[in-house]
C-alpha cells in the first residue's frame, strides 16, 4: 500500500511517548507523515489543520484531556479515526472514550505488536 498521502496525528504530552510511537509506526511504513500535539487543545487545532488519517491520543494531558479532545475532534469531523493510548485502561475510561467517539484503545506501555495491528486494521481495513 502507498502511504505517501497518509498523515498520523500523535498527541501526548510526553515527547518520549510521541517518539516511541513514531518509531514503531516508522517500522510499519517510512512514507507516513506525522503531526504532533502536546495537549488536548493542540490536538483539536492540529486535527483541523492537517486532517490526518488516524489519531493516537493520550488521555491524561494538561490544558484539555484526551476525552475533551475526542469530543472536539468528533464535533469537527464525525468520521475521525481516533485511537486512545493511555496508561489508565479502566472499564469506565474505555467506555467514556468509546462513547465520545474513539474507535480503539491501546494500554500503555505500548507493544509494537499492538500498534502494528491497529495500523493495519485502520489504514488498510
Amino acid at each position: 500500500m502507498d502511504f505517501k498521502d497518509t498523515t498520523i496525528l500523535i498527541c501526548d504530552d510526553s515527547i518520549l511517548a510521541r517518539k516511541q510511537l513514531k518509531d514503531v509506526i516508522e517500522t510499519y511504513s517510512s512514507d507516513i507523515q506525522f503531526a504532533e500535539a502536546a495537549n488536548g487543545q493542540e490536538a483539536i487545532d492540529k486535527y483541523k489543520e492537517v486532517k490526518p488519517s488516524l489519531v493516537f491520543l493520550d488521555i491524561v494531558m494538561p490544558v484539555k484531556d484526551g476525552n475533551a479532545a475526542v469530543k472536539g475532534i468528533i464535533e469537527f469531523d464525525n468520521d475521525a479515526d481516533i485511537i486512545i493510548v493511555s496508561s489508565v485502561g479502566t472499564q469506565s475510561q474505555l467506555k467514556s472514550a468509546i462513547e465520545a467517539g474513539a474507535k480503539d484503545f491501546i494500554q500503555k506501555p505500548i507493544s509494537e505488536e499492538q500498534v502494528l495491528k491497529v495500523l493495519s486494521s485502520h489504514l488498510e481495513g
Binding site: D13, S14, I15, L16, A17, K19, V60, S86, S87, V88, G89, T90, Q91, S92, Q107, K108, P109
Partner: peptide, 23 residues
Amino acid sequence: EYVKASIDDFLNLHNGLFLVNMS
C-alpha cells in the same frame, strides 16, 4: 526534555496501572 519525559512517563504509567488495579 527526554529525561524529564521519561520520569513523567514512569510515574504516569505506574499510577495508571494502579487506577486499573483499583478499578
